[in-house]
């Protein structure tokens, strides 16, 4: 089974990203960049499937400028076999990314796509579902467990009320939730080896896809800030404040 994982370069999860003062964009100057945490979980799951003998090859894809090669190398160091960078503007939108991925899925005859359920920058939560729709594939979003039997994938999903398990025909798209696995750390020898793994660069034209956006960001701004309130001395005082000042109980 051939697996495709898509990885995204985002601001590190520990960074509190802010809007620029002029409202034109977010300020990412000197911000530490990393692989999106959900994408890392997707890569880990693919690597585990290869270790179990379910998968034969893992292709790691990222869409963006040359800098995304760093995140592809991270995926290669974790165990992906080869990488593809699609050289496109870094703010390419989910629908266009899905079309690019669909073209690669078809070109490479991929059986399973694993992506993160959302990226922590745009918080869109769209790409996996869009790819599945465009390619006419089954999907399981928010996966916390993935089992293969009889040529089908049985996936447990984290839904609002608890857990749901569905069965998917292959090829399929699975989007990873936090509890699917805990990603390993790449070892130094594997990081060195990753540098020698193949990494191809394609353009949207190569794949026959237009990446022109239909959404424009008019402006960005900070959210309404909450002010720190008061410290109370005791449980008694807290209850008094909630009853008589805030009037919420």
């Amino acid at each position: 089974m051939k697996i495709l994982v898509a990885v995204k370069r985002v601001a590190d999860a520990n960074v509190k990203v802010r809007a620029k003062a002029d409202g034109s964009d977010v300020d990412l100057a000197n911000v530490k960049m990393a692989i999106n945490p959900f994408c890392e979980i997707a890569v880990e799951e693919a690597v585990r499937l290869k270790e179990k003998g379910v998968a034969t090859e893992i292709i790691a894809v990222s869409v963006g400028d040359k800098s995304v090669q760093e995140q592809i190398r991270t995926a290669l160091a974790l165990g992906a076999d080869r990488g593809i960078q699609v050289d496109a503007p870094k703010d390419t939108q989910p629908l266009a990314i899905s079309k690019l991925l669909k073209a690669i899925v078809e070109k490479e005859s991929v059986d399973l796509v694993i992506v993160g359920k959302q990226s922590i920058d745009g918080d869109n939560n769209q790409t996996g579902q869009m790819l599945a729709a465009l390619a006419g594939m089954s999907q399981a979003t928010f996966a916390s467990e993935l089992i293969f039997e009889d040529g089908k994938a049985s996936v447990t999903r984290e839904v609002d009320g608890g857990l749901q398990t569905i069965s998917l025909n292959l090829p399929a798209v699975v989007t990873a939730d936090l509890r699917l696995n805990e990603p390993r750390y790449a070892s130094l020898p594997n990081i060195m080896k990753a540098k020698k793994k193949p990494l191809d660069v394609l353009t949207p034209d190569d794949l026959g896809v237009s990446v022109a956006p239909t959404l424009i960001t008019v402006k960005v701004e900070p959210p309404a800030e909450r002010q720190a309130g008061v410290k109370v001395e005791s449980v008694e005082q807290l209850i008094d404040k909630l009853k008589n000042e805030a009037k919420v109980i």
């Binding site: 977010v26 920058d121 960005v220």
Partner: peptide, 9 residues
């Protein structure tokens, strides 16, 4: 966006 640290129009 960005976990609610930024509001985009």
């Amino acid at each position: 966006i960005y976990a609610g640290n930024v509001i985009a129009t």
